[in-house]
């Protein structure tokens, strides 16, 4: 297994490398944008089949946000929906044989950093500056370093969780491919015939199930952390 390939380098700041991950992210952004435009093209009072799909998706996300965060956080539902779509497509892109976007620590860590900023902003808004600073020395001032560490560990654990799940699946899949290739050469097959079909079973778990679950969990954790920060 190797890191993402560098496609080209932008010659500013002493060379800004544009990796596979970044290029695939652009593709996913374009895909999600086109999907949204197509689904909501010429909306009518009586929905067509296409519009019904869009309405169903929006209702699904709004129901999830309402159940998890409550009525006063409904403004977060577009953010959660786009995070979910990006994460889901970013993991599912591995089904096309491309490198999953979420198997790069840069991607997941930047999302986690976004969540971290949201948490701090929401807490600052809810508690005002005095209460915000005071929340770090509760219950006793002795706990200050521990509170800061626990605050900083939230984005680290979120980013590593998503990255680790997808990258671990990638490592296991590539190990299986290697094992099947050497097994077929031991059986004197002209082409690695055993690689056909068998990895697909593993792919159902590692690509479909894990990709979907991690997207869901990342969004759930974002919602839970943000809404609990504002209480």
């Amino acid at each position: 297994m190797e890191g993402p390939k560098i496609i080209f380098t932008i010659p500013i700041f002493g060379g800004l490398p544009i990796t596979e991950t970044v290029v695939l992210s652009w593709f996913i952004i374009a895909l999600v944008f086109v999907l949204c435009r197509v689904l909501t093209y010429r909306m009518k009072k009586i929905p067509s089949r296409r519009q019904a799909v869009a309405e169903k998706l929006v209702e699904l996300v709004e129901k999830l946000v309402r159940n998890t965060m409550g009525e006063k956080f409904m403004r977060f539902s577009p953010f959660i929906a786009s995070l979910f779509a990006f994460s889901l497509f970013g993991s599912l892109i591995s089904l096309l044989g491309l490198r999953p976007v979420t198997a790069d620590l840069n991607t997941t860590m930047s999302w986690a950093l976004l969540t971290f900023i949201l948490i701090q902003v929401e807490r600052l808004k809810a508690k005002k500056l005095k209460g915000y600073l005071k929340s770090f020395v509760e219950p006793v001032p002795f706990m200050l370093p521990l509170n800061i560490i626990s605050e900083l560990s939230t984005p680290v654990s979120m980013g590593f969780r998503h990255f680790g799940n997808i990258a671990g699946g990638m490592v296991i899949t590539s190990l299986l491919y290697g094992a099947l290739a050497s097994l077929s050469s031991m059986l004197f097959l002209p082409v690695p015939l055993l690689q056909v079909g068998i990895p697909a079973i593993l792919s159902i778990y590692f690509d479909l199930f894990t990709g979907f679950l991690q997207a869901f969990i990342f969004c759930m954790l974002t919602m839970v952390f943000v809404s609990s920060a504002a209480d």
Binding site: S157, F160, R161, G164, N165, A167, G168, L213, F216, I217, M220, L221, V224
Partner: peptide, 15 residues
């Protein structure tokens, strides 16, 4: 699922 995801962190750190 949420609890499982949080419990998973230590394993993911090992990974």
């Amino acid at each position: 699922l949420l609890g499982c995801a949080v419990a998973e962190s230590t394993g993911i750190y090992g990974l």
